[in-house]
Design a protein around this nucleic acid. Structure first.
Lengths: 83, 83
DNA sequence: TTGATTTATATCTTTGAGAGTATAAAATAT
DNA sequence: ATATTTTATACTCTCAAAGATATAAATCAA
């Protein structure tokens, strides 16, 4: 269901969740696209220095794609917002 | 409308489109989140070595977020697929 | 067309990523 | 509980990102 991804940390969480959902290991994912297991580990743990090239290889391995959306201001019901 | 983003190139295109939609310059975007103009230029031009930290700063500057989705297999009408 | 703004390139420096390899720690299975 | 698998860390090496600064090239406006 892919919640808001706004940081290397939340991205890492999403990637790990998708990988587990598919029953894959960091090693198998890495091997399928030529990336070391330790690199996958670091990305999933929120490494902000990870490279875009690496990210997209992981996405390819998991058969995922990205979408860019306007940030959704999380509604605060106490403020009486109506959506 | 944010098409499939599956590479540093397509990501760069999306970022550039969103920035222009908001009428901002690479410099203003960079300044707002502490990134050099030339760095924004490289990301928009598909630099695969760009860092995730940099990407999310740009997204913050543009008030955008990411979503991870399963890759949509582009339908081939000639194959008689029905969706 | 000219002048100004915006974007692309370039150099030098510092810093860290990822490959390759190894191993420790944690999680899973038997 | 113990063996096995998976994930996290560590170290060296090479390479390039981004900062800082400058300038060329392209785009836009008067």
């Amino acid at each position: 269901m892919s919640l808001k991804i706004v940081s290397p940390e939340s991205l890492g969480q999403a990637l790990r969740a998708e990988r587990k959902k598919k029953g894959l290991t960091q090693k198998s994912v890495g091997t399928s696209v030529g990336i070391e297991q330790h690199t996958i580990s670091k990305i999933e743990n929120g490494n902000p220095g990870a490279e875009l090239g690496t990210l997209f290889r992981v996405l390819a391995a998991l058969d995922l794609e990205l979408v860019v959306l306007p940030r959704i201001k999380p509604m605060d019901k106490s403020k009486g917002d109506v959506w």
